[in-house]
Simulated scan of single mutants.
Amino acid sequence: MDGQPAASTPRGRLTRDAIVDSAAGLMYVNGVAGTSVDKVLAASGAGKSQMYHYFKNKEQLVEAVIARFLENILGNQPTIFALHDWADFEQWAGEILAIQTTPQGPIACPLGNLAGELGDDPKMAPLLDKAYREWESHLERGLKSLQEQGKLAEDADIARLAQTAMACVQGGLLMAHLRHDITPIADALKLALDHLKSHARP
């Protein structure tokens, strides 16, 4: 990330990770506005000088949190990196649903939480959009693979299909979390898959 020095030692990486992970946990629950630097330092056990060595200001910390949220999201969807068949898309959807059926679920999308708070912020909104676009890009690559194999219509707009699938996922996650019921995300994932498959070639 621009302007943020990398940790050059194992101890430094642990400190930086502790700061980012603590900030991510607090911002997921309390939002950015409700998360002060002092609260992050208390939760991470880091000192203020360490904090400002890695992050010049709170905005840079939020940028790191966005990256961490995306990293964690994609880490829970490993199949998204290898979408080569319709069965892979089914498995990807199953991985999303599996997270929602844990004792902690249904859980809100952490990027969605930040988007709700920072969607109008001229500095943060583009960073959130970039994270979503990276998430979508893996779906696009999978759809492109299907298209090249002749399993998806040649005239299918893969960017728009990926965007529609993402919209379904985000809406489903929001409603599932709000209602404490996995049905909305289960239905949204089915809707997304059905829409993608409507462009499949026989």
Rank of each mutant, 00 (worst) to 15 (best):
R68I: 09
Q4Y: 01
Q91W: 08
L83G: 10
E136M: 13
P126S: 05
M175F: 14
L152A: 03
D2K: 14
S22N: 02
A162C: 10
G112N: 12
H138C: 04
L173N: 06
R13Y: 00
Q170V: 05
V40G: 07
M27E: 03
L14H: 00
K39L: 15
H53K: 15
G112I: 04
T9K: 02
V37H: 10
G142M: 05
L41V: 06
A7V: 11
T164A: 14
L173Y: 04
Q100L: 06
V20K: 08
Q91K: 15
E71P: 02
R13D: 06
T15D: 00
V20N: 03
D21A: 14
W92V: 06
S44M: 09
V40N: 01
L173W: 08
I73D: 12
D120W: 13
L161E: 03
T35S: 03
A153G: 13
Q147L: 10
H53A: 13
M27C: 10
I158W: 00
L193Y: 01
Q163I: 03
S49L: 05
A186Y: 11
G34A: 07
P122I: 02
L41F: 03
A186K: 13
K48D: 10
L70K: 04
D17T: 12
Q104D: 13
D120F: 13
L173C: 08
L189I: 09
D17N: 12
A7D: 01
H138V: 09
P5D: 08
M27L: 09
G116N: 06
Y52G: 01
H53L: 13
G171D: 12
A186G: 00
H53M: 10
I80T: 06
H177N: 08
T79V: 09
K190V: 11
A42E: 14
L174C: 06
